[in-house]
Amino acid sequence: MAEMAASGESPEILFWVGCAGSFDDRYKAVTQAFVKILNKVGVSFAVLGPEETCTGDPARRAGNEFLFQMQAVSNIQVLNGYNIKKVVTACPHCFNTIKNEYPALGGHYEVIHHSTFLQQLINEGKVTMQGGGGFKGKKITFHDSCFLGRANNVYEAPREVIKALDVELVEMKRCRTKGLCCGAGGAQMYKEPEPGKKDINIERTEEALDTGASAIAVGCPFCLTMMTDGIKNKNRENDVQVYDIAEMIAKDQGL
């Protein structure tokens, strides 16, 4: 972004990569897949790179409002400094925070989740399916992320993207408004769960496996981690894959 600004350019969208997208080894592949799609379509976009910092979501959900606001205010200063109007992110937590919680601190942007963005590209014919990745006809289930679904009522966009791949989309018993959390929200990602009889991601993985799907599609970095761990726990990593929807589209495009 700094380079673009220096040369007087202003991008159509700012891709907010997020911490998982920047540092999580598995999830970096999702960032790369989404960027490949953006490059192929020829969308003018920028990333903040080292100028991006945590949105503050986990701090806020864990109760540390000071830390959240410190993060938020500094991010807003950067975004406003570059005169950013439109933000796209693959992380529902970043999406929710920037879209719903930054306005109260002076950050007003059009914020969309990458599922909605991909759906738009497909609807506009900018992405046409190439049949790569071998998804056609496969049974695939979608796991709703709480911060995309219940928190922001985005249920159809990721499903439309998956359906565009001509797959058989099978729903879990608890889906959409009743979707079961992967167990990572509310800053649970960063600590061990409280004592109980089971881990939430195992409960959800069992439900996903019950559908008989050969792949679980997600739209959230934490869900990706939790479901992948669940699949490993069940020793099914050889026959059941966990993908972010952007990876599925990139594979289809042979990217």
Partner: peptide
């Protein structure tokens, strides 16, 4: 304790995990 560590990571390296902020663009 683990949340406190997460808070500290955000304060010092601007990410809930302890990575160097300068590595943020390494995925590219």
């Amino acid at each position: 304790q683990q949340w406190n560590a997460m808070f500290q990571n955000i304060e010092t390296s601007f990410s809930p995990w302890k990575f160097s902020p300068s590595d943020r663009f390494n995925w590219a």
